[in-house]
Simulated assay, not measured.
Amino acid sequence: MDNFSSDVPRSTAQCLAPLDSVESPLFRVPEGACDTHAHVVAPGNGYPMVEGRSYTPPPAPEEKYLAMLAATGMSRGVLVQISVYGSDNRYMLEVLKRNPDRLRGVAVVTEDISDQELLEMHAAGVRGLRINVLFGGGTGFDAMETLASRIAPLGWHMQFLMDVRQLPELMPRMQKLPCPCVVDHMGHMPVSLGLHHPGYQALLHMVTEYGWWTKLSGAYRISDLWQDNYRDVVPLAQRLIEAAPERMLWGSDWPHVALSRMPDTGRLRNLLAIWAPDEQVRKRILVDNPARLYGF
């Protein structure tokens, strides 16, 4: 794993900046393709970061984000509230409002958020809330039932940044949530632990039996084979796609925070040529599925 060294104070650890260029596509990226997982970080000091954050990212402003979408062939995008801002969604919401036809968002809120605030977020393009238990600044599992009941009438989903080694214990609670659920980064568990690990088996169970969604993202967060195109992730990605091609999503995870080396965003997109060699399956993952979940 390539997270920061434990001897560096995490809140002050400076993230690398994303690469300026991207690898050319190895397949025809279909019209309407969507990158369902990226973040924006405002330039300047107008949006203070939370003290309990796990890392400090460089600016990744709207113009660089939109340029990344264009460079990777993406017509649409989904912004996920970055943990360093906690529940201050202002910058993400501003970017969404300036790009209403092209972008959607996943916010981070606390349990005391008002109904009016949720409605205003919906009007801005927010379609989900994120539970994050891996990085400081997130909302945890204690809030998920309350928040899920609040967002179900809006047609929103709950997104989980978690290590699925926690999933077997949490399944009795999560199976009762009244809204769709999405798991980030294929479960964010090292693939070296194997597909028969109870965590991955629990994820597959929720995908096949409870209609959960998964983001085919963050291969570099779970792989031991950076220099071999994350080859060890292929069996997991293909197994998830086989289990529920109609509920798979792709995301770049740009600007790739909290890593000690920087992946090529274009190469991450090109992994779909290996994971989903069938063109129609790739279209479902890149176009049809996100259009349905996010309401494009």
Rank of each mutant, 00 (worst) to 15 (best):
D7G: 08
V8C: 00
R10D: 13
S11M: 09
S11P: 00
L16I: 08
L19I: 00
S21L: 12
S24W: 11
P25C: 10
P30L: 03
C34N: 05
D35H: 02
D35A: 11
H39V: 09
P48F: 07
M49V: 08
E51A: 14
R53Q: 01
Y55P: 02
A60H: 13
A60W: 01
E62M: 11
K64C: 11
L66A: 10
R76K: 15
V78G: 06
D88A: 09
M92H: 10
L96K: 03
N99G: 02
R102M: 11
V106D: 05
V106N: 07
A107Q: 08
V108Q: 06
E111R: 15
D115T: 14
Q116W: 12
E117M: 07
L119H: 14
L119Q: 14
R127W: 08
R127S: 08
L129H: 03
R130F: 01
I131G: 07
I131V: 15
T139K: 06
A143M: 05
A143W: 07
T146N: 06
L147S: 04
A148T: 08
R150E: 10
I151G: 03
Q159G: 02
L161H: 15
M162L: 11
D163S: 09
D163T: 09
L167C: 08
P168K: 11
M174V: 11
K176L: 15
L177E: 08
P178G: 10
C179H: 09
P180T: 08
V182T: 06
V183W: 02
M186L: 10
G187Y: 09
P190H: 08
P190N: 05
S192D: 06
G194P: 04
L195M: 12
H196I: 05
H197V: 01
P198A: 04
A202S: 15
Y210E: 13
G211S: 12
G211T: 10
S217M: 04
G218L: 07
A219I: 10
A219C: 15
S223M: 03
D224V: 12
Q227G: 05
L236F: 11
L236M: 05
Q238Y: 07
A243Y: 10
P245H: 03
W250G: 02
W254E: 01
H256C: 12
H256Q: 03
H256P: 02
A258S: 15
S260G: 04
D264Y: 09
D264C: 15
G266L: 05
G266H: 02
G266P: 13
R267K: 13
N270R: 12
L271I: 13
L272P: 05
D278F: 00
E279S: 14
V281K: 06
V281N: 03
R284S: 13
D288V: 14
P290K: 03
P290D: 06
A291K: 13
R292S: 15
F296P: 09
